[in-house]
Amino acid sequence: MTSNLFKSILLLLSSILTIIGIVLSITFGYADTNLLTTWEAFFHFNASNEHLIILEHRLPRALIATFVGASLAIAGALLQTMTKNPLASPGILGINAGAGLFVVLAMSIFQMTNLFSFTLVAFLGAAISALSILAISSVGHGGMTPINLTLAGTALGALFYSLTQGLLAINEAQLDQVLFWLAGSVQGRDLHMLWIVLPFLLVGWLITAIKMKQLNLLSLGEDVARGLGLNILRTKFLIILVVVLLAGGSVSIAGPISFIGLITPHIARKIIGTEHQWTIPFAAILGAILLLFADIGARYILMPQEVPVGAMTAFIGTPIFVYIARKGFNKG
């Protein structure tokens, strides 16, 4: 067992790395700037091009990457605990697929085109999709078993995804705008969008922080947890609510970014152990770090063109993940 002191140090160090990531993300990119420019942009602002890029473009981007990365990681950790399936991620509640479908519908039927309206529509889509999956999987007395939930989620997710593809195939003209959104990116968003979504994310974080104990109980298995007095149904509903807030909020601002929710909980469990009061904060920090650095990398690979951040996440995340998988996972 690793001691609590060691775990605290780990959390502290990784938080520092997150801050370094934020600073780097604000400082480096296509426009030639350095740490000094960044410092001046914040404290001696002179409305030069560089300063505007830093404050209007890169700062929102860094903050969004941090919040979205952390939220996706927490959502993934919660779902893996709840479904007892190491492959679970926010994707299995159909959140990305639902958001994608609604955005494409909004574009092709209501002619919406700006990113701001995408935010609201995407959140709506994520919530509706998660609720329908909940409803389908809990019809009848078999109830909302992990397997029913997983399968209903996967099937409905696939349905939404295929409808999205169908709509796109018919409306090729509008493809460009929405493809940019569908690839998942933290670029080109302004801070107002973050302020809209942030309350949802923070509420999700707060509920997770309060309910750590229940999560530890749930990971012992449903029978044991019930025997120890946990209200399983209520806990599950709460988890799904939190996942909708976190993953729905994330997809609505950054588009579908899938890999982080899946892998960071595994990495966190391997390094810091399986108690949720440690795993979840650590996973959140790792998620933020991964998305921050992936976003920085995405600017450099095909410069001046940007690579979708989801692709970059896979390039950075996969080697770490494979290494950890070879060492053997800790069960959640």
Partner: peptide
């Protein structure tokens, strides 16, 4: 399956980058 998932993501990312380039 876990390593498969990782490699799948990696391959998709490679395809995306090649397609963009």
């Amino acid at each position: 399956v876990m390593i498969g998932v990782g490699i799948a993501a990696f391959m998709q990312a490679t395809s995306t980058v090649l397609m963009l380039a």
